[in-house]
């Protein structure tokens, strides 16, 4: 089974929430800024708990933050 590619809307959501900085989001969900950068770039798929915490910090549902990138085959 091939690995799922997970995309996210964190950058857009940050800007829609009073241009929240990466550090502010990191502090809200108790991770380092580097982890937020890695998630935004798609270099790191967060745990389910962290994914929910990020969604909670934006007051949106999980599917509005993270989505599966389908390969056009």
């Amino acid at each position: 089974m091939s690995k799922l590619k997970i995309g996210n809307n964190i950058r857009r959501l940050r800007f829609e929430h009073s241009e929240m900085t990466q550090q502010e989001l990191a502090d809200r969900v108790s991770v380092t800024r580097q982890t937020i950068i890695a998630i935004e770039k798609g270099d790191y798929a967060p745990s389910l708990e962290l994914a929910f915490r990020i969604a909670q910090s934006f007051n949106v549902r999980l599917e509005e933050v993270f989505f599966i990138i389908h390969n056009p085959e």
Partner: peptide, 9 residues
Amino acid sequence: EPPITDERD
């Protein structure tokens, strides 16, 4: 120095 060690670390 990053104040915390998170799940990625």
